[in-house]
């Protein structure tokens, strides 16, 4: 009650009740599909089309089926490996470029920044064809590198890191210069640790977007062993039959790393979102 009561009069303000209701409604909207996914993953295939929220006879059979399917574990590992590699690459290269643009004066700096930024205006759907042609010409089709290369560095990440590096006082960098560090060591040992919240936010968002990426991995891969998890899950939907219980189980398992990441790094995510001025 205290959260929605006026601190002065002790009365509950109508505005606060409305806010609380809206937040509750929004929360419900977010949580219901997730809860329905978990509930469905516990249903028997015969119950799938009953549309009851809770399973009549909860079973872990689907989890046994999915986890004993070698393909699922492979896709899971593929997704994890790809998302991790792309995240590490982004954290390093976006920071390096952002730092250079924020802290060094050189001819054409603004032009480079605008050129990078302008790529943000191009929708992914338009980029898919050039990416495909590029992957084909370089022989990267149907390979892990083919899945990863378009995301190894992003304009958004570069922009985000540049903005953060601009807030790092030059005194820190100059002090390090006087202390005898070379320029890379200044970036690595001084500047980078000072933007940890932004780095965490970038890492989390990059990992999540790559973990859930669907269109590009679907286009660039043909071999099932190279599928990422979201692409692989579509294999449970074949023409004759859609195995919703297995798709939901796979999806439920797929959320586990993201939920773990969120629970472990909740503090950084919230701080990162606030700092980055992102809408999540």
């Amino acid at each position: 009650m205290s959260a929605i009561a006026s601190p002065v009069s002790g009365r509950i303000e109508p505005g606060r009740i409305l806010t609380w209701l809206l937040l509750f409604g929004g929360g419900l909207l977010m949580v219901t599909p997730l809860a329905f996914m978990f509930a469905t993953s516990l249903k028997d295939s015969s119950e799938i089309y009953d549309l009851a929220f809770f399973p009549a006879h909860p079973t872990l059979e689907n989890y046994v089926t999915v986890l004993s399917d070698g393909r699922f574990l492979r896709w899971f590992a593929n997704s994890f490996g790809i998302a991790t590699a792309v995240t590490l690459s982004n954290v390093f290269f976006d920071s390096l470029v952002g730092y250079t643009l924020a802290k060094f004066q050189f001819r054409g700096r603004y032009l480079v920044f605008v050129a990078i930024l302008s790529t943000l205006m191009i929708p992914t759907e338009m980029l898919v064809i050039p990416w495909y042609v590029m992957a084909k010409n370089f022989g990267w089709l149907d390979s892990y590198w083919g899945i990863m290369f378009p995301g190894m560095m992003t304009a958004f990440g570069t922009f985000l890191m540049k903005q953060f590096f601009e807030t790092v006082p030059n005194d820190f960098l100059e002090a390090a210069r006087v202390d005898g560090l070379n320029e890379f060591a200044i970036f690595w040992r001084i500047a980078l640790p000072l933007v940890t919240p932004a780095l965490s936010a970038l890492a989390i968002f990059t990992f999540l977007s790559n973990w859930t990426a669907f269109i590009w991995p679907l286009i660039v891969t043909t071999s099932k062993e190279l599928y990422t998890l979201p692409v692989g899950l579509t294999s449970y939907a074949v023409e004759a039959q859609v195995q919703w219980e297995l798709i939901m189980t796979g999806a439920a398992l797929a959320t586990l790393p993201t939920l773990t990441v969120f629970l472990l790094l909740q503090r950084y995510i919230v701080r990162g979102v606030v700092l980055a001025g992102l809408k999540g």
């Binding site: 006082p169 002090a175 006087v178 202390d179």
Partner: peptide, 15 residues
């Protein structure tokens, strides 16, 4: 370079 001048500097914002 600063590191070759055998100097040490204290900054306004401590750094």
């Amino acid at each position: 370079e600063p590191k070759e001048r055998n100097i040490a500097m204290v900054f306004q914002n401590y750094a």
